[in-house]
Simulated assay, not measured.
Amino acid sequence: MVNESELLVFRGKIEGKSQFTRGLFVSVNGYTREALAAITKGKSPNFVMLDGSHLYRVLEGNVRLDELLCRAVRHLAETGEPYLPINKTS
């Protein structure tokens, strides 16, 4: 599982780029609760987060990758949360 420090380093790398830059962080084994809570404190996330359950749905053909990414980006824009649980993608 990915912890808070790894996400903060990734956010910092994206912040060093153009203000229009967005990122995608994929962790097959998911994220710790602390990481999910910490990444939304203080600054707005500039990336979306997917995990193994998302990839599994794509590989099974249940959702197209482009549709999943659009849903994740919309979720980030509407809620400020970079992680969209798989049960909310359908």
Rank of each mutant, 00 (worst) to 15 (best):
V2P: 06
E6N: 13
E6Y: 09
L8D: 07
L8G: 08
V9A: 01
V9I: 07
V9L: 09
V9E: 04
V9W: 04
F10I: 02
F10Q: 01
R11T: 14
R11W: 12
G12S: 03
K13H: 12
K13F: 08
K13G: 11
K13V: 09
I14T: 02
I14R: 01
I14G: 07
E15Y: 07
E15V: 08
G16T: 10
G16Y: 11
K17W: 13
S18M: 10
S18H: 10
Q19K: 15
T21D: 14
T21H: 11
T21I: 10
T21G: 09
R22L: 15
S27F: 00
N29S: 10
N29F: 04
N29Q: 12
Y31G: 00
Y31C: 00
Y31A: 02
T32Q: 07
E34M: 10
A35G: 06
A35Y: 00
L36K: 07
A38V: 03
T40P: 01
G42V: 08
G42L: 04
K43R: 05
N46L: 15
F47D: 02
V48D: 08
M49P: 03
L50Y: 06
L50A: 03
D51N: 05
G52R: 01
H54N: 06
H54V: 09
H54R: 04
R57T: 13
G61K: 00
N62V: 13
N62R: 09
V63M: 07
R64C: 15
D66T: 13
D66F: 07
D66N: 12
L68W: 05
L68H: 06
L68D: 02
L68F: 04
L69W: 05
L69K: 11
L69H: 00
A72E: 11
V73D: 13
R74K: 12
L76W: 01
A77K: 14
A77L: 15
A77D: 13
T79S: 06
T79V: 00
T79A: 05
G80E: 01
E81W: 12
P82C: 02
P82F: 06
Y83M: 00
I86M: 09
K88D: 08
K88H: 06
T89D: 10
S90A: 15
S90L: 14
